[in-house]
């Protein structure tokens, strides 16, 4: 198939960017969107033009590296949500015009073309997205039974791949879905209880320094490649409000 892609090109963080149109020719419907970009890039290099820079690695929807706005939708899939690398060209039609833009948010400055700096998400994890247990100090794994439904729910949240699509799609540039997924993953498990309230407060505070706030548009959930539910946001709000109503002393003893 043949299509026209309009891609945002920007040489560096400071440089001015703009759309450039390219022809994507003879693309197999079985190719992925990234493979289509590979083909375009090969032809660009042959013509002496620099390739379109975009981030990617696993190409199977798990590393969270890839991500771009395709026709106004993060990762480009309008049906079942998936990562850009999982989107196949059979989802497009012959002759389509496709607009490709980088993630946009104040917290995600552009590095080059479609590559943005998502390190703000790591900063949120650093604020408390962990369980403080040093190597070697763990008890026997089966000592604390965890009800299967709890483990399943925790896993639903833990499935996040930190691609940043939630932020990119959210009209407010909010990272609520991402943060709440980590808060819930750990906060649901017995092992996560001791730090549960301190964790949510610290993570939310750091999150709010960089990102917008939630107005429950539900856009994040709709584009999340791992279908993480916005119910986790409610859960995070609840824990945050509860934490704020507890005294510091109560929090430090984990009640």
């Amino acid at each position: 198939m043949n299509l026209t892609i309009h891609v945002w090109r920007q040489k560096s963080r400071e440089a001015k960017g703009g759309f450039v149109a390219y022809k994507a020719e003879n693309i197999s419907p079985d190719a992925s969107f990234l493979e289509m970009l590979d083909v375009v890039n090969e032809s660009l290099i042959e013509k002496g033009e620099e390739s379109i820079h975009f981030e990617h690695d696993c190409r199977e929807g798990i590393c969270g590296s890839c991500g771009m706005m395709i026709n106004g939708v993060a990762h480009g899939s309008r049906g079942k949500a998936m990562a850009t690398c999982q989107l196949h060209m059979r989802h497009f039609k012959e002759g389509d015009e496709v607009w490709v833009e980088p993630w946009r948010a104040r917290a995600f400055p552009i590095i080059k073309d479609l590559i943005v700096d998502r390190s703000g998400l790591d900063t949120i994890i650093q604020a408390g997205g962990f369980i403080s247990v040093n190597t070697g100090s763990a008890p026997e794994a089966n000592m604390i039974p965890i009800p299967k439904p709890v483990q399943e729910l925790s896993m639903d949240a833990a499935a996040c791949i930190q691609c940043g699509a939630c932020v990119a799609q959210c009209p407010n540039g909010a990272a609520q879905l991402f943060t709440s997924a980590k808060v819930s993953h750990l906060g649901l498990l017995p092992q996560g209880q001791p730090e549960r309230y301190e964790r949510v407060v610290r993570m939310v505070e750091v999150m709010e320094e960089m990102f917008g706030s939630c107005t429950m548009f539900g856009e994040c959930e709709a584009v999340c490649p791992k279908a993480i539910s916005i119910d986790f946001i409610a859960r995070m709000n609840r824990d945050f409000i509860a934490a704020k109503f507890k005294s510091q002393k109560e929090i430090s003893v984990g009640v």
Partner: peptide, 28 residues
């Protein structure tokens, strides 16, 4: 909050499509 949110997304998209946000949500 509106001010915070505007700041969080200083540059918009050329093309923007809503998948889930209702008309009501967008006009609050």
């Amino acid at each position: 909050l509106t001010i915070v949110n505007r700041k969080a997304r200083p540059v918009g998209y050329r093309d923007r499509d809503y998948l889930a946000a209702t008309y009501a949500a967008r006009t609050m």
